[in-house]
Design a binder for these strands. Structure first.
Lengths: 349, 349
DNA sequence: TCCTTTATGCTCAGTCTGAGTATAAAGAGC
DNA sequence: GCTCTTTATACTCAGACTGAGCATAAAGGA
């Protein structure tokens, strides 16, 4: 009678070490290999996936306790900061899995931890999240992949649009998402960019999902009338299983937004740190360089940190004072966040 | 073997008419009446509830299409702007329902509509959302209920805390949530305020839930060692069924935040409007008065609206020019939002 | 000692914000 | 017609905040 339901709990577990933002991934057998056509899976039969586990409807009193439970069981990590991200429930999210016919609803979470050794289930590893989104890291320079691959590919896609109005809209979306025709780069639009690339058929997942759909529903027409020609479509960024890269994009965008107005970065830092270390972590997450002196001014004036009186002389120059996060701030007024080109509207009374 | 699972879709459907923000509610039989003790249910056997419907795992391709489907079926409303809010999955959210033992996971959505006639399922009605949160409307004046009831009650609750440190923390939470000891009122902390009142036992739902827990799990100890004395606990605001008031608080807080940085207000307005009408809608949502001239300046400069050349002479004074929302802005740069005392950090490069 | 490197303090102009003043345009009452 | 009330709209101004850069301090190494 009713389609069976499964609640999955997905976790995007983030840490930052050595100025590299990392995401905890597991390996997952690549079911789509059974299909005609070749997968863009670097090590053959396995794809990266976000760790996930089912909700134990009987035992887990709350969703996030369920998440913490299986993360602990699988990886030995005791999660601290955890935030619900989004619930993904599209049919066909998992076309092959769960006995074809079960509906999988995934509640995705973002968790921040200090990186540490893993134990428990084997195949977990920390990966630089910019492997999945190579166009998102603007710290050193505007990523060359944008001009080299993304812009030309998307230009083709735009050009292939039928109606002139459609074409103009597509062009606009592309420009805004990737900061192209004079538009500013908005580091929070991670999901928008990924979905644009997906829609245009330039990420491996789109190709795979399309094939799976055709296989499962033989008569189904291809929705993407504008999908690129069969030959040499670039595959941008490292793919993941199912819709996990979409979930990761959601996590990244949300985190980039959140650091601007809530002091969550400190979850990723050790208890004392120099202001430059703090800045580097923020930059790693935001994928953007910040002005050092102004960053200091903002963080200090914001009352987020306090001096410890101790110094770190490993800096290579003048020793830097170590600071610590003022926990009181969590309970004080608005507990801002560490600065970034954020929003800025106002007015009152 | 496994506990049965139900995915519920809840909708907080919001409209604003005559400067009153309204929420669409339905009536729901009050199961807790079967228990000893009396419910604070104004019309006896029914409680207000947010409209909800189950996901049809077989037929609904996505969660929000499922939502739109049953909202259409039940009320005749075709939803436009819809945004996922949060997924609520605590056990005991619905202690009585669904044959005791089923686990209900609710995905809550926020929807904005222009108010209109309802048809379809009978018992739906639009209610001023400040009936549920009488302490949230600061437009005319600081609500008297805060000083008259909330502050004294919470002061008692704080005083009842055992440990001095606990007491200090509670005091801090109260001050910040309700803007008490010199703290500023932050209109976005709707959920924090509701949860504080719940925890302290001053909303009807807490009393009801506590009774239900005691009934269902006879041996369960009362977590809330500080819950108020049995006599004369005030019941603040109109209660709702289950955890629907919590969901509504989430919706309100999220909407109050969102109008600051995305132009969502226009979903609630007719196609042309005067700037004062726009301002009144924003004020209704935010529960705060704004400075008229500055509001104009921000909205006009932000490029959110354009003049129509037509005028509204129903103003009672000089006719006001009618404006229209510039849809292009959705696809342009950051598409800010209409002003409010929002955030304001920044720095870059 | 000089040079390089990083830390940290300070300045300055441009912009944004909050608040208020001033003028314009309608209707009501006379 | 004129005056008063009401709302709309334009403009001003001081203070705060932002983005950018200059200057000095403190360490290690050549």
């Amino acid at each position: 009678m009713t389609t069976p339901l499964v609640i999955g709990l997905n976790a995007a577990i983030v840490a930052v070490t050595h100025e590299v933002p990392r995401i905890l991934t597991v390996k997952r057998p690549d079911h789509s290999l059974a299909l005609p056509g070749e997968m863009v899976s670097e090590d053959g039969a396995f794809l990266d996936a976000l760790p996930f586990g089912p909700l134990d409807a009987r035992a887990d009193p709350t969703l996030d306790l369920g998440l913490r439970r299986w993360v602990r069981e699988q990886t030995g990590i005791e999660l601290g900061y955890v935030e619900q991200l989004y619930t993904f429930g599209d049919r066909n999210r998992d076309p092959e899995g769960h006995g074809a016919g079960a509906r999988v609803i995934s509640v995705a979470y973002l968790a921040l931890v200090r990186e540490r050794q893993l134990f428990g289930a084997a195949e977990a590893s920390w990966r630089d999240w910019y492997e999945y989104f190579p166009w998102e890291d603007w710290r050193l320079t505007r990523p060359s992949i944008i001009d080299r691959e993304i812009a030309p590919s998307l230009a083709q896609w735009v050009a292939a649009a039928g109606h002139p109005t459609t074409r103009r809209r597509c062009q606009e979306r592309v420009d805004i998402a990737f900061g192209l025709s004079g538009a500013a780069w908005d580091e929070e639009r991670v999901l928008e960019r990924y979905e644009l690339l997906y829609e245009a058929g330039f990420v491996a997942e789109e190709v795979r999902d399309r094939m799976l759909r055709t296989k499962l529903q033989p008569g189904s027409q291809n929705r993407h009338s504008q999908s690129p020609s069969q030959t040499e479509t670039p595959s941008l960024g490292r793919p993941m299983a199912l819709d996990h890269r979409r979930i990761l994009a959601t996590a990244l965008g949300r985190l980039r937004g959140k650091i601007k107005y809530r002091p969550v970065v400190f979850e990723l830092l050790s208890s004392t740190f120099t202001l430059l270390q703090l800045q580097r972590v923020v930059e790693a997450l935001a994928g953007v360089r910040l002005h050092k002196q102004n960053f200091r001014r903002l963080v200090e004036k914001g009352g987020l940190v306090e001096r410890t009186g101790q110094f770190d002389s490993e800096t290579g120059g003048r020793p830097a004072e170590l600071f610590r996060f003022r926990r009181e701030v969590l309970r004080e007024r608005l507990a801002p966040g560490v600065g970034l080109p954020g929003a800025g509207r106002s007015l009152e009374s």
